[in-house]
């Protein structure tokens, strides 16, 4: 099986890595770059725990081949905070108690980040629609929705 040498930018840092054809972006992030904030909950595009931003848009990194990310700009949960300053969403998740086990949290944050970037003042329904691909088994979603509303100001 072939390997491919790819370059990509992850959380602002340029990376050059060799990846096997069948590696997913999720595997690359977690197993090669040790960015374990991004979670694997199903490997099938269903749970959203693996959501990252690929060129600014949220994708299920379990359904993107690592080689497909050649040349791309990737943002994971580890890249949300800047200069020690939390993203307003991260702060809102803390303040609103939107975190329980925390396993869905990274994916939720990135889906929500993308939502607020394309729609800075979403309605509650728009928030719920944007997060429908992020399963949470702990919170019942209410506080997550509230946190996104709060971060939107």
């Amino acid at each position: 099986m072939a390997t491919h040498s790819i370059t990509l930018t992850v959380n602002g840092a340029k990376e050059q890595v060799d990846v096997a054809s069948n590696w997913t972006l999720l595997q690359l992030l977690r197993d090669r770059l040790a960015l374990t904030g991004t979670k694997n909950g199903c490997s099938a595009g269903e749970c959203g725990a693996c959501t990252v931003l690929l060129n600014g848009e949220p994708v299920n990194s379990c359904l993107v081949l690592a080689v497909e990310a050649d040349g791309a700009n990737v943002v994971t949960v580890e890249g949300l905070a800047h200069d020690g300053q939390l993203d307003p969403l991260q702060q809102a998740f803390i303040d609103e108690g939107a975190v329980q086990c925390g396993f869905c949290t990274p994916g939720m944050l990135l889906s929500a980040r993308a939502l607020l970037t394309r729609n800075p003042h979403p309605s509650e329904r728009e928030i719920r629609q944007a997060l429908v691909g992020n399963l949470c088994r702990c919170t019942g979603y209410a506080r997550i929705v509230r946190a996104v509303q709060k971060a939107a100001g």
Partner: peptide, 18 residues
């Protein structure tokens, strides 16, 4: 606030597979 919240929103919290 939860004592584990900061770790969990930054991706720093370690789960077993991590």
């Amino acid at each position: 606030p939860r004592v584990d919240a900061l770790e969990k929103v930054t991706g720093a919290a370690r789960f077993t597979d991590d």
